[in-house]
Amino acid sequence: MSGNGNAAATAEENSPKMRVIRVGTRKSQLARIQTDSVVATLKASYPGLQFEIIAMSTTGDKILDTALSKIGEKSLFTKELEHALEKNEVDLVVHSLKDLPTVLPPGFTIGAICKRENPHDAVVFHPKFVGKTLETLPEKSVVGTSSLRRAAQLQRKFPHLEFRSIRGNLNTRLRKLDEQQEFSAIILATAGLQRMGWHNRVGQILHPEECMYAVGQGALGVEVRAKDQDILDLVGVLHDPETLLRCIAERAFLRHLEGGCSVPVAVHTAMKDGQLYLTGGVWSLDGSDSIQETMQATIHVPAQHEDGPEDDPQLVGITARNIPRGPQLAAQNLGISLANLLLSKGAKNILDVARQLNDAH
């Protein structure tokens, strides 16, 4: 009898209710805020589980004197976190989706994509230029951005401005803007500013005609071990179906173009009346040469937790077992079709030249 009692006690200790789920994140304040929001949602869904947040620095956090596009290494903000995932030191990792490459290392998958916040870019102005827009900034004003995508589009749109690289986390960039006289304004992701509670610093939100956004911008991705079915089931509740389908289309477009950090590629997606609209573009580094096109596809946005595919093969690095396969494939095909259209119009040449120029500098 006593033996059975011990077995029952052991089973209770090993039951999922007692389990601590370890969540990996970057150390920056924004990353911690984003991770806290994901953990809060998981806690609400699984009140019996405990969650421990483990923060670590990544290569991208450490190399702050070089433009991201020049470092010449993929997975700048993800490699150390993936290493911890691989060694079973954490069970899942919360990322900004735009930091996750469209091809993940073997053994990993994006197990959830959370509801997207505003994906557009924002302009934050130096205190002396508050009330201005990019259009009304004085001639030769210097605007800071760490992104080739932003610089290429904005140089084309605002030729009277000069664009220079600015690195560091959000706090560091804002301090550089406010305390030094080098920059009249800087460009940042609206979602990051909003998550930090800095709505009052948003001086201008850039519309798609001015600057399309990065693939996955404004959404959070939760990376897990691809074979860890328990954790895949656990994080599945975080999937937002519309965000998922938009981001599958965007990531398929980028992957098929073979774009990345070192080339200016941008997108804009919208879901309306059962249609998914995808606009994508590529630019030369100075913005003088560009190709942009829009395509659409009829896609039914499923309700969360309709029964999805059981075999769960990944699409552009994403596993969404609780979302039907048909809409996911339709979104992926839309991204591939748009990429093929741009490639047929000469996108590869623009991107190759951009890559060579970026590598040469």
Score class of each variant (00 low, 15 high):
I21V: 13
V23Y: 05
T25N: 06
T25L: 01
K27P: 11
S28F: 01
Q29W: 11
L30G: 01
S37I: 12
S37R: 11
A40V: 12
Y46K: 10
I53C: 07
I54Q: 03
A55F: 15
M56Q: 13
T58Y: 01
T59L: 06
I71K: 12
G72Q: 04
E73P: 07
E73H: 15
K74N: 13
K74V: 04
S75Q: 09
S75A: 13
S75D: 06
T78P: 01
K79R: 11
L81K: 01
E82F: 15
H83Y: 14
K87P: 01
E89F: 12
V93C: 08
V93D: 07
V93I: 14
G107C: 12
A112Y: 04
R116S: 08
E117P: 01
A122P: 05
V124Y: 01
H126M: 08
H126G: 11
G131Y: 11
G131N: 09
K132T: 10
T133V: 08
L134C: 08
L134V: 09
L134A: 08
P138Y: 07
V142S: 10
V143I: 13
L148E: 05
R149L: 01
R149T: 01
A152I: 12
R156P: 13
F158V: 05
P159A: 12
H160V: 05
R164L: 10
S165H: 11
N171T: 12
N171S: 12
T190E: 03
R195M: 01
R201M: 01
R201Y: 15
V202C: 12
H207I: 07
E209N: 01
E209Y: 14
E210R: 13
Y213I: 01
Y213E: 14
L220P: 01
L220G: 03
G221N: 01
V222K: 01
E223G: 07
V224M: 15
V224W: 03
D228N: 13
D228T: 03
I231T: 07
H239A: 12
D240R: 01
R251I: 03
H256A: 15
T269M: 05
A270H: 11
M271R: 07
K272L: 08
K272V: 15
Q275G: 15
Q275F: 06
L276Y: 13
T279H: 05
T279S: 10
T279C: 01
Q292V: 07
T298L: 07
I299M: 15
V301H: 03
V301N: 01
A303W: 01
Q304M: 06
E306A: 15
G308D: 13
E310F: 01
V316A: 11
G317H: 01
I318S: 11
A320C: 06
I323S: 10
Q328W: 14
L329W: 05
A330P: 06
Q332E: 12
Q332K: 15
L334H: 01
G335S: 01
I336A: 07
S337R: 13
S337K: 05
Q356E: 13
